[in-house]
């Protein structure tokens, strides 16, 4: 079973290597394939990191636009999926900071009134389960939400998460423990009569 899983992973990575090679030489098909292959994963991650659906869509859109623009400069060391997920996490963090700044000057509420949560031109719709987790995670401080999501849903190590958050590994692990404890109390509270 492990052999089959490893083989599948190797095939995926090989396909990504070919896709990147073609994409860097201007292949339109390669870009389309990369988009179709990873957009759902990226949207799911953005949906968990950002409560606002519009923000999640914008983050993934911006990541793909930057990616399409950077074909010639792209120097990929790890996996393509890992690279794109990291881009989404970084972009979501920046957007969250910008949102916090807007809240301090009182512009956020006005913006929310101007852009309702559901629009006819919607890119994504969440399943009930995704909405439930998104709501629960939104109760956490952003750093905790990010650690628990990146570790459990994007498969990132604590070392890598700590580096992206510019904190020590122990701090990242501490945030993870706090996040789990709070999620536990949230869900247990839901279950109580």
């Amino acid at each position: 079973m492990t052999v089959i899983l490893n083989l599948g992973k190797s095939v995926r990575m090989l396909e990504d290597t070919v896709l990147i090679w073609r994409f860097k030489r201007g292949s339109r098909e390669a870009l389309c394939r990369i988009y179709e292959k990873y957009r759902t994963d990226l949207l799911r991650l953005a949906a968990l990191l950002l409560r606002d659906k519009g923000d999640a869509e914008d983050v993934v859109h911006d990541v793909f636009v930057s990616f399409a623009r950077s074909a010639e400069m792209l120097r990929l060391v790890g996996s393509l999926k890992g690279y794109l997920l990291t881009c989404v996490a970084n972009n979501a963090r920046n957007r969250n900071r910008a949102r916090q700044r807007r809240q301090t000057v009182g512009l956020d509420e006005a913006a929310e009134l101007a852009s309702p949560d559901t629009t006819p031109d919607q890119w994504i719709a969440y399943s009930e389960e995704l909405q439930r987790w998104s709501d629960a995670l939104a109760e956490l401080p952003y750093e905790q939400r990010e650690v628990v999501t990146l570790h459990l849903r994007a498969g990132m190590t604590f070392r890598r998460i700590a580096r992206s958050q510019a904190v020590s590994v122990n701090t990242a692990k501490g945030r993870y423990r706090y996040a789990l404890a709070r999620l536990r109390s949230t869900f247990n509270g839901e279950l109580e009569p």
Binding site: R39, T40, L43, R44, A47, L48, W123, I124, A125, Y126, S127, E129, L130, W133, V148, L152, R153, L183
Partner: peptide
């Protein structure tokens, strides 16, 4: 959380 079937419709 790790195993949740979190679907998005595009």
């Amino acid at each position: 959380f790790k195993q949740a079937n979190l679907q998005v419709t595009i």
